[in-house]
Design a protein around this nucleic acid. Structure first.
Length: 427
RNA sequence: GGAGAGAUGGCAGAGCCUGGUUGAAUGCGCCGCACUCGAAAUGCGGUGUCCGAUUUUUCGGACCGGGGGUUCGAAUCCCUCUCUCUCCGCCA
């Protein structure tokens, strides 16, 4: 029901105010508190009336069973029933307004998140590997893809519009190899349970993870079925346990899922629109965890390390960035971005975001667990991170492993999946 | 796409026709206690979630798939949505 814990918001309103401010939100709190106050007032009055009605109805029932006439009592209660109906309408209106405001309120940043207002305040926490030092002119992924016949943006756009990539030949195989490699990697090495989710979900599922109500315009929507194309596997996988009470012994649950991801990327034209850097459809392997609240920050560190391990296994130079409070996404309490170095593009490319949502998503989706110690029910914490997204990974891979002859040498883990160690022009 | 049946607590399963201590029988499961060297079996007791008020305690309210309606009163009657199952059709 609630997004932030309403009780917490009431009793620690100044803490919440400061947290929202750190995320750049200074206007949500006061109206929220006011609606909450009025809503509680209405509930109290309503409960009093209902209690009266319940007692009277019980008496009427008893009288009727005893064969007595109850007309007088019934007539008296008609007025009360009218009042209740009216008050119920007011209560549900306030409840709706409260709900709307809560759903539109972002999560609060964790204490360890660097304070700031934008991307510029993000902090690089570590860097792995070295940038490629080549003694020959480096090509970018578009030139390499063209030479090796890996993809065909022109024909992809012909049938589907720009931003819908068409992979061809070794490009198609390499894409599939990367996905298979990453799925196997997380399953075998870290014991993630593999999931193959639906790529279409209902609005409620989008509400759980926080895409709705605020980001409807970023998604593809099928009007006829009132369904959304998923922007990430996070949505269906997190919703696996929506409206469930898990047992503590089941936690942590760790899932790895492949999905295609669909994003409108409205308003981002003119920026990073070349090639694979920003797409309407791309492939991603996603990691999702459901954990005990007291372990979620350890799990965030391990989640990040697990995503990094993919890049390490592929021998790619990357860095880990801790997002500042101002750059944090709507639902996240803390987030690390993984950025891989693309030597041909000469820039860092974001291939993963590893986030702890704490109880934010769990509240929205009522994902709970029963504690072993006291048998009480509490919200789980959810986390997810890309493990990782392929288009930019492919860019970094091609550009990093290019040879002076314009071919691409494959890192060891991919060779078994591709059945070769070298990509060469097809003709 | 067409026709029909159904959705009840952790699970199974009554109640719905004939609205009135039914938050809900019964069984299983689970927890505690007794018995036992221990276990099983047996006996006794307990065992939902959410919200509000008060807060060491307690009181009140809501919830029988979701939403709405009828009524003094709905798990029970009416409408609607979603989902599940069966049959027919279609189909990778």
């Amino acid at each position: 029901m609630t997004v932030l814990d309403l009780n917490f918001v009431r009793t620690h309103s100044e803490t919440v105010r400061a947290g929202l401010a750190a995320k750049g939100d200074t206007t949500s709190l006061d109206p929220l508190l006011e609606v909450d106050r009025r809503h509680r007032e209405a509930i109290t009055r309503l409960n009093e009336l209902r209690a009266r009605r319940n007692r009277a109805s019980e008496a009427i029932g008893a009288a009727k069973r005893a064969g007595k006439d109850a007309q007088e009592a019934i007539a008296a209660m008609q007025a009360v029933a009218r009042d209740i109906k009216q008050l119920e309408q007011e209560e549900s209106r306030l409840q709706q307004e409260l709900q709307d405001r809560l759903l539109a309120t972002p999560n609060l940043p964790h204490a360890s998140v660097p304070r700031g207002t934008s991307e510029a305040d993000n902090v690089v926490v570590r860097t792995w590997g070295e940038p490629l030092a080549a003694d020959f002119p480096l090509k970018n992924h578009l030139e390499l893809g063209e030479d090796l016949g890996l993809f065909d943006f022109r024909r992809g756009a012909k049938m589907s519009g720009s931003g819908f990539p068409l992979y061809t030949g070794d490009g198609a195989r390499l894409e599939r190899a990367l996905l298979n490699f990453m799925l196997d990697f997380h399953r075998e090495r870290y014991g993630f349970t593999e999931i193959f989710p639906p790529f279409v979900t209902r609005p409620e599922a989008m509400e759980t993870t926080g895409q709705l109500p605020k980001f409807a315009e970023d998604m593809y929507y099928i009007d006829r079925d009132q369904a959304y194309l998923i922007p990430t596997a996070e949505v269906p996988v997190t919703n696996i346990h929506r409206d469930e009470i898990l047992d503590e012994s089941q936690l942590p649950l760790r899932y790895v899922a492949y999905s295609a991801c669909f994003r409108r990327e409205a308003g981002s034209y003119g920026k990073e629109t070349r090639g694979f850097l920003r797409l309407h459809q791309f492939n991603k392997v996603e990691l999702v965890k459901f954990v005990r609240p007291d372990t979620s920050y350890e799990e965030l560190e391990s989640l990040t390390a697990q995503a990094e391990a993919v890049l390490q296994a592929l021998g790619l130079h990357y860095r880990v960035v801790s997002l500042s409070s101002g750059d944090l996404s709507f639902a996240a309490a803390k987030c690390y971005d993984l950025e891989v170095w693309a030597p041909g593009e000469r820039q860092w490319l974001e291939v993963s975001s590893c986030s702890n949502f704490e109880a934010f998503q769990a509240r929205r989706g009522r994902i709970r667990y029963r504690r072993a110690a006291d048998k009480k029910v509490d919200f789980v914490h959810t986390l997810n991170g890309s493990g990782v997204a392929t288009p930019r990974l492919l860019v970094a891979l091609l550009e990093t492993y290019q040879t002076p002859e314009g071919r691409v040498r494959l890192p060891e883990p991919l060779q078994a999946y591709m059945g070769t160690s070298l990509l060469t022009p097809c003709d």
